[in-house]
Design a protein around this nucleic acid. Structure first.
Lengths: 150, 150
DNA sequence: GCCATATATTTGTTAATACAACTATTTTTA
DNA sequence: TAAAAATAGTTGTATTAACAAATATATGGC
């Protein structure tokens, strides 16, 4: 047998977080399939919420996505008849985004599935651990927002 | 001003983890750029470690990646002269993977950058929190490995 | 008003990954 | 042993994302 002495290297935090993140994303993807949207598309829909006429820049901030990604996800949502884009009158560079009734239904259904996700996570960690995990993720995220700028 | 009443919805765990994961990945990507490898390519290189002649299936398990992704990342590493593939003699369906001296240097340099990543994370959370975060990620990951099968 | 600059958005490229379908080979089994 | 099933790997497609570069429009300084 080959030399296996190093095959149990502890994974880095980045690698470990990636692995777990993708499992959560897959869980959501499977449950959202019936509404013909993806987890990231839902994130954008929930970012829009009940605000009508937001411009893409504001939606990008709310969904914590960059502008090219936001453009492409909004294009998909438009293709699915979930949002409508209208060129701004005051500023013709921008586009105002309006969501359809169907989008509101899908967003609400998706929000319930996000609750299901939370409950499923709570099957293996405590509520205190859940809150701590969320807090640590946010703290690290903010720290690296700064670090990555340098 | 439009109705902003819902724009502060707490993000789901999936969304929050994705945002933070991508920031850690970006940090690694910037630091690994000088070696012309990506964080995920490093994960595969470190999975190989000092084991010569592993088959792709074993590498996929160690790197916690699926087979198509492993194939494509190994192809990239081969193109960069970091690994060499050799068809198995005993089982001609499989390919044995051998890493070059250059790969060993790059992997060791990358490993040091993963330590830097850990130290950078420890700038904003305690060592106890770091260990707990890793443990929670692994526990959730294992739980959803089961859940996603159903 | 004109030109430089800033801003909103889009497009192209590369990377990673999930899933499904496919090829090639090996193993099982009837 | 021949057919069926399993296994190793590859390829195609869709999604998401980062980065760079492009376009269109707006704003500022002069």
């Amino acid at each position: 047998m080959t030399n296996n002495s190093r095959h149990d290297l502890p994974p880095s935090m980045g690698s470990a977080m990636g692995v777990t993140y993708r499992k959560l994303a897959m869980y959501m993807q499977h449950h959202l399939k019936q509404y013909d949207i993806t987890p990231e598309q839902l994130t954008v829909l929930l970012g829009i919420g009940d605000s009508e006429g937001l411009i893409q820049k504001e939606i990008a901030q709310r969904a914590r996505k960059d502008h090219p990604t936001t453009t492409r996800i909004l294009d998909q949502l438009e293709g699915k008849g979930l949002i409508r884009k209208q060129q701004g009158e005051r500023d013709r560079r921008s586009f105002l985004v309006f969501s359809t009734d169907k989008a509101k239904e899908v967003a609400e259904a998706g929000r319930l599935h996000e609750e299901d996700l939370k409950n499923e996570i709570l099957e293996c960690i405590s509520a205190e651990e859940y809150d701590m995990l969320m807090e640590l993720l946010n703290r690290i995220g903010e720290h690296f927002s700064e670090v990555n700028k340098e």
